[in-house]
Write a protein that binds this DNA or RNA. Structure first.
Lengths: 216, 216
DNA sequence: GTCAACGTTCTTGCATACAAGATTTATCAT
DNA sequence: ATGATAAATCTTGTATGCAAGAACGTTGAC
């Protein structure tokens, strides 16, 4: 996967956090991680520092690293920012998409339709990710795409929880449909608005999130 | 400043990059930095890894760390995202500001007026920063504020260049005035639009940036 | 039985050491 | 003189060691 041990560790631990293997609040013991991955403490420390810089891990001086627990309110704030960035990506994509972008977006959208109508929420989860990444790419802003991917990744666990809510997959796909239409029609403002609404968790969706978080 | 050596180093090197002490493309030699700051290579490496995670430094495997050179296009992309985030902050602030926020914003705004009319672009630079941070705070979104501060910081050198452009300070202050009005009137959409325009570098401002970058 | 003070143990933070890959330099052949 | 190859040097990547601070348990007093 990666060249050096540190990158590998960073990815492994990050995945562990994303996949809830390391739950929020869990202590990340250096020697424990080191023995687990068969390396010394040094690369483990370096990986933890990187995760700290990203904001996934908190390092309390002399007291070790713990997985950050954002809490419902902060998760909401993160979705709020994500919505804004996705909106921007959508509006830029509506103005800038190429033939290749169009093909990629439509392909991902078609896959979403399949997994949605099949009622396969796990498959939909992955197709949905491809769909959104296709839009980031369509924005033709490398920096924006990176920011979106990073934030998307951090929100991954909560997004996943959301899809478990009843009918969310079907609703999500319907929203995709309108988004694709707006983008391909070149309607930047409409694409922005729809994507913002699609991503943000307002009203009852926030309640659903809190409820699902509590019952983990 | 900070508890441990790594944080201190991270800040020092980051400041060095921001202030162009370490120019884009410059090699960051581990032993050199270590002796310079009177520490061993270990904390230097850890600091570099953090800067790598933030995106200020590129670490090429087995070939050392260099300061990333974003290039005009990427800088433009970064301002584009910054504009969006500031716009969001402004719209949230318009809806959520408290009496304390109002006081802080007005105070910073008044300082901007002073340094602007005094023609002191260095002073304006700092007052401007306070003004924008006051708006971030007014948004009452901790996550958004963090993102804004981080990006603001990364764009610091280029923002500074911009203020050197003729009349930019006066124009900037005039824009602030309208922004304050919109926020305090609770006009979220107007605040968003004005802030977006205020921050983004469209048209001739981009040409100015490129020109200034070239003649550094 | 509870609480506090002290000592032990464990963990982190930084330094040093060593190995492996990259770079530079020197030598040789054409 | 120029190019290539090989050796020496330098730099990075990882491991280990040591000191200082935090967590924990024990002992003693009330």
């Amino acid at each position: 996967m990666s060249e050096n041990v540190v990158q590998r560790l960073r990815d492994e631990i990050e995945n562990g956090i994303i996949s809830n293997d390391f739950a929020p609040g869990a202590r990340l013991d250096e020697v424990q991680l080191a023995t687990r991955f068969g390396v010394s403490r040094t690369p483990v420390r370096e990986a933890l520092m990187q995760l700290n810089a990203i904001g996934l891990v908190e390092i309390r001086p002399r007291r070790g690293a713990v997985v950050i627990d954002p809490g419902p309110h902060r998760i909401f704030e993160m979705f709020e920012v994500m919505a804004e960035l996705e909106g921007l990506a959508g509006s830029l994509a509506a103005r800038r998409f190429t033939d290749a972008d169009r093909t990629t977006i439509l392909a991902a959208h078609a896959d979403c339709e399949r997994s949605s109508s099949a009622g396969n929420s796990d498959a939909y989860y992955y197709d949905n990710e491809r769909f959104h990444k296709a839009i980031y790419a369509g924005s033709h802003s490398g920096f924006l795409a990176e920011q979106c991917v990073a934030l998307h990744r951090r929100l991954q666990p909560y997004r996943r929880l959301q899809l478990r809510v009843r009918n969310r997959v079907a609703t999500s796909f319907a929203e995709h449909d309108a988004i694709v239409e707006a983008i391909l029609a070149g309607d930047a403002e409409q694409a922005r608005t729809l994507l913002r609404q699609h991503v943000s968790i307002q009203g009852e969706r926030f309640s659903d999130l809190v409820a699902t978080l509590a019952s983990r």
